[in-house]
Design a protein around this nucleic acid. Structure first.
Lengths: 304, 304
DNA sequence: AGTTACCAATAAGAATTTCTTATGTTGTTT
DNA sequence: AAACAACATAAGAAATTCTTATTGGTAACT
């Protein structure tokens, strides 16, 4: 490999531009011998003379002309790199890789949209995956930030709650319990529940809740999305437990109702998570703070 | 300006590629701490972290990914520059700027063509100009090599003869002297000569020759090209003095004849010239040697 | 848990590179 | 011939880039 230094190329570029060692030295705030030496070394490692002196003036040799071309090109690249990195420091630009758990799909896009609107030039990629995959990504550092309902225990995770995530029992409006008030919790044991697949956050939260209250719930069908559960509940196939945030539309259009069960809603939160010790990029840090400080309020506004 | 070194970028590129400081150190035949330091300095001058360590593995940050892109690009440029310069060293490639005096136009192209044929990848530019302009270019280092009939005295010129350049007297076949033998030189004083413009090499050689032999020649028309002189002589407007090389075609087709005058032909030579002290490029050097060693022979062959 | 292995960070000093000052050489100008 | 302008050269100072030796932290294996 050619043993040229960037310094040599910079000096060379200046000399070639001025066609003068002394002028170049001035421009670079160097002494003239320093320039001479750099050029000499450069010529040495290139193996060809780059300048020729005819009388008082100096000229570029053919080799010099070629190298001048490349020097300028490299200088351009560097300047561009500098500009890009400088922008990244100022949050003006950056990439943000976010993974959210399926359920968050009902509100995350709105938050992301708002954040992007405020901070132009940010390239954002949103990954909607289930809880298990997200935990995997977290372990392998394949994303900047994650949003999930309940951070896992084992791993070293930095998780902070930023918004409420009430789980409620939903039913078709025609369900016998639809109009009742203060339904006692044990009453649910008689009902069939349509649940998410094992590994889902909602599913495990639900199981833990029933276990805590010494209830055995009869699970009917398993569905892999909240959307499917809502459909099944609407069709009268049983009750469901979902995040309040996912059913705004169905409540409004009276396709579903929330049952008034004792001890409900289950009070949970949405967490923004990243692996402990991960150095967040400026953009990621900004988005995290945006979530912590404004997400709850923003979602309220949207709902109203 | 960013104070990055090429070394830093090289080291960074290796680390980014291997995602390991130790592997990069091996590849570069360095110790691991050396790599650590280079990266640290690079991060310092960039102002952003380039890697992040999660557990045992390291990953590129966004800034790192950007810089990686530019590092590779710069490395490519350098490799390309190296290849080009390496080729130039080996004569495989190069540029050659040659200026020839107008008269040389009759043979120079053939020589150049042969040289180019032998050495592919050489970019050649041939400049046909008159003697005065050529001397100017010589002084200003605006060309690699020149070909002229008589090198100027004043300047520091390195001139070497490489081929004969006999000047002969030409006439129309219908001219009274056309068939005479051993025409005495003074006889020419009665004839009218069609000559090149002042400043032309042929013109001054001619004037010097007549002055040496104490003859006053009567010049009729002045023409700025040898081609025009030949036309005029054919038309019977007088005699001409031109280089033998320029009239091969006309002799063959009997449009012109060479007069058998005493002391003729004027024995001159073609010279390859460059400013003294000029560092000839490898290509230029090669062409010069080609002229010195083969030109005469090649032109013989072509004529025959 | 304790041990081992691996990887990167840090510290100190050696080797190398890159500067500056001082001076020499060459070609141009007066 | 002398003065000037421009690059080359030499020697030593300053800065950098290495190496060796050591520390700290994480993961894997008894």
């Amino acid at each position: 490999m050619l043993h040229v230094t960037l310094r040599q190329l910079q000096v060379f570029e200046a000399v070639a531009r001025h066609l003068s060692f002394s002028r170049a030295a001035e421009e670079l705030h160097l002494t003239q011998p320093a320039v001479s030496m750099q050029i000499k070394q450069l010529e040495e490692s290139v193996g060809l003379p780059l300048f020729e002196q005819i009388g008082k003036k100096i000229f570029l040799t053919d080799a010099g002309k070629e190298l001048y071309h490349y020097s300028r090109s490299i200088a351009m690249q560097l300047a561009e790199a500098e500009a890009v990195l400088e922008e990244m420091k100022g949050l003006k630009r950056g990439k943000l890789n976010i993974s959210v758990v399926s359920t968050a799909n009902y509100f995350a896009p709105q938050l992301l949209a708002l954040f992007c609107q405020r901070n132009q030039n940010i390239t954002l990629s949103l990954n909607v995956i289930n809880r298990e995959v997200l935990i995997n990504q977290l372990a392998n550092n394949e994303m900047d930030l994650g949003v999930m309902g309940l951070p896992p225990d084992g791993l070293d995770i930095d998780a902070e709650p930023f918004m409420e995530n009430p789980l409620v029992v939903i039913a078709s409006p025609s369900h016998p319990l639809a109009l009742e008030k203060n339904i006692p919790l044990p009453r649910l044991a008689q009902e069939t529940f349509i649940v998410r697949e094992p590994g889902s956050g909602t599913r495990s939260a639900m199981e833990r809740f029933f276990a805590q209250h010494n209830l055995i719930l009869s699970t009917g069908m398993e569905m892999s999305t909240d959307e499917a559960i809502k459909q099944a509940v609407q069709a009268g196939m049983g009750l469901g437990i979902v995040s309040m945030l996912t059913i705004a539309l169905e409540l409004e259009t009276k396709r579903l109702v929330v049952l008034d069960v004792d001890s409900f809603p289950i009070r949970r939160h949405w967490y923004v998570v990243h692996r402990k010790g991960k150095r967040l990029s400026v953009v990621a840090q900004a988005f995290k703070e945006f979530l912590l400080q404004e997400a709850a309020q923003v979602m309220q506004t949207v709902k109203a």
